[in-house]
Amino acid sequence: MSKKIPVTEFAKMGYCETLLVLNKKHKNEGQSYRDQAAISRGNKEHDAFDARVKKQHIPYQAANDKRCFVASCVYGQEHPKTERLRRFRDRSLLPTSCGRALVKLYYSVSPKVLPLLEKYLVLKRITTYLLNAIVRRLPCN
């Protein structure tokens, strides 16, 4: 399998092909003080915008949000049923305002419920039974 090339490296093809070949030939990809300052400025702006846009661009689609506390506790983090519940959250709940409110409520309550589930096996069994009933009614994909 060929080694994956970083996209930023690949994009340098648009700058100067001779520079690319010479850098490889002389094993020298030197950066001037000016380049280093520019890179540092760029990284700061990236980090600052990343934090701002996640906070203030609504609605924020939690596409990579792996949180699913109760299901993870009952089934496991990477269980297919946990994935189905995450897909249901992302596709059916998050696009609507009522769904988002429900998700918000769930995330505020579930960390407090988790210790109880871990402490009382009976409670965990009841939760598993209820979750299984919900998962059965969810679409497969």
Partner: peptide, 26 residues
């Protein structure tokens, strides 16, 4: 809506590339 920010992605077919996109909107 903001779908993802600063996420690492990669592929091996048709060509092998990897990188971190800045923002992806839906």
């Amino acid at each position: 809506s903001l779908y993802g920010s600063e996420q690492h992605i990669s592929c091996t077919t048709p060509i092998a590339l990897k990188g971190t996109y800045d923002q992806l909107y839906k």
